[in-house]
Design a protein around this nucleic acid. Structure first.
Lengths: 259, 259
DNA sequence: ACATATTTTGAATGAACATGCCACAATTAA
DNA sequence: TTAATTGTGGCATGTTCATTCAAAATATGT
């Protein structure tokens, strides 16, 4: 067998699971153990694989890694996030609330020079290394799991801030207004609403009609809602009659086009 | 089974709940108890878990894959960090400065119920999911790359805080005091020193004799220094005559024992 | 085509490493 | 205290590794 042919075969096998044992390669390839060893050594020096005892692990975007990266947020949330990011233009000062959807928004904010204010640790970690964004973190008591800073300190910090836009998420929306389950969270978000000129709500269609423990704000505080096309026409007209601009992204069409 | 495969399996299991008993690992993995013990010992030396009696707790980063886990911070820093963590007892309120060594300290703070105040995004992200620590983040302008919050907001936030201990790093130490290169950083750290009852400095031995742009504080502000045994006797006596307790960890002996 | 270098390959060797087992020390619980 | 659990170190055994060497394949020069 040709040398390169054998080596690319090794790479193919290694790529499958991200790791191969030397024994498996010997079994699958018609060459002696010594030869495979030498091949592995070579592939290691040119950086294609990483040699380990008893085998080698594949370097680069292996399939399993790629899959796990893809499955982060639901498709709707990603579409909503992308549209929301499109609404934001360079030079803005954006207040970013915590939440999975807002985190997605942060992902899509590439290439725009922005000033970002946030109380979400995951968002801050994500934007930390982007030179084009000036990041200001809102400190406070960090709520476990979600990683958002809340409490009096956070409220105080927000009080001294001003932003051109707030991108926030919510627990539920009804005609009465927005809801959220956590009292501390509500306090912080209320202050955020006061600090921003324009309030953009990101919420997938399942949130409409949902209530939660504490009411956050009336609908009149919200300027626009970005949601997916699962939202009913009734809710749409309720929102629009409250003076809210509805930005609806098509998820089914998008999904069909992607596959 | 291949060595690395088994070890990464152990890490996966450990990561799930933050802690695994040795017995559970023996039950779930097809290897003898001795082997698992040795694996735990290895994973402990590379700083991914912390060995405890009857099991181990996970202290690595959740994101990285096994190969990149092998090389993290230098061994000296890990030893310094471990010793520093040992100095901290349950119930304390600890102010944690930014920096690679302090990040390592945070990793080793397992099982202690603490209140942690920090301005470092990496540290906060690490401690976010630890239910036993109450985390308070110090907000402000997030300095790129390092991910520490600085500026007037940070200084203001620290001014209102009080901690039983500050664990801080530095750019350099001479008889004149501590140095750091960044003016913003110095402002924040000065305020941190004021806010804490006891100042613990973590610094590997290469920092002694180093100067940097701005002086941070005199030696009298520091209560104890944790460093490695590369520090010369001269520096040691200089520090001790300034009333500083020197905590010196042995790195060479440790390293020799591992190999 | 032939003889001669060069490279590649496969097998063999001892060293290094990993493993499982056991005895015994240390620690914890009763 | 005793009993039970967990940790430590030694040792025999099996694997894996790096090195070496000769045979085979390939390339090169005449």
């Amino acid at each position: 067998m040709i040398v390169d042919e054998r080596r690319s075969k090794i790479l193919r096998i290694a790529e499958e699971c991200g790791f191969v044992s030397l024994q498996r390669l010997v079994a699958e390839i018609d060459a002696s153990e010594s030869t495979i060893r030498r091949d592995l050594e070579y592939l290691d020096t040119i950086g294609q694989i990483q040699r380990t005892r008893g085998g080698a692990s594949f370097i680069g975007d292996s399939l399993s890694d790629f899959d796990s990266r893809k499955s982060r947020a639901s498709l709707e949330k990603q579409h909503i996030a992308r549209r929301t990011a499109d609404l934001i233009s360079s030079g803005e000062t954006v207040l970013l609330d915590g939440g999975t959807t807002t985190l997605e928004v942060a992902r899509y904010l590439t290439g725009k020079s922005l000033q970002i204010l946030t109380n979400s640790l995951p968002i801050a970690s994500l934007l930390m290394n982007r030179p084009e964004v000036e990041l200001i973190f809102i400190g406070g008591y960090v709520y476990p799991r979600t990683g958002v800073a809340l409490g009096e300190q956070a409220v105080e910090a927000v009080r001294k801030m001003h932003a051109s836009r707030l991108v926030m998420s919510t627990g539920g929306i009804t005609a009465e207004g927005l809801f959220n389950s956590n009292a501390l969270l509500v306090d912080t978000e209320r202050q955020m609403i006061r600090a921003a000129d324009r309030v953009t709500l990101v919420a997938d269609s399942s949130k409409f009609g949902q209530r939660a423990l504490s009411i956050l704000c009336p609908l009149t505080d919200v300027h626009e809602i970005v949601t997916d096309d699962g939202v009913s026409d009734e809710w749409r007209s309720v929102m629009e009659s409250a003076g809210i601009h509805m930005e609806v992204v098509e998820t089914v069409a998008h999904a069909a086009r992607v596959r």
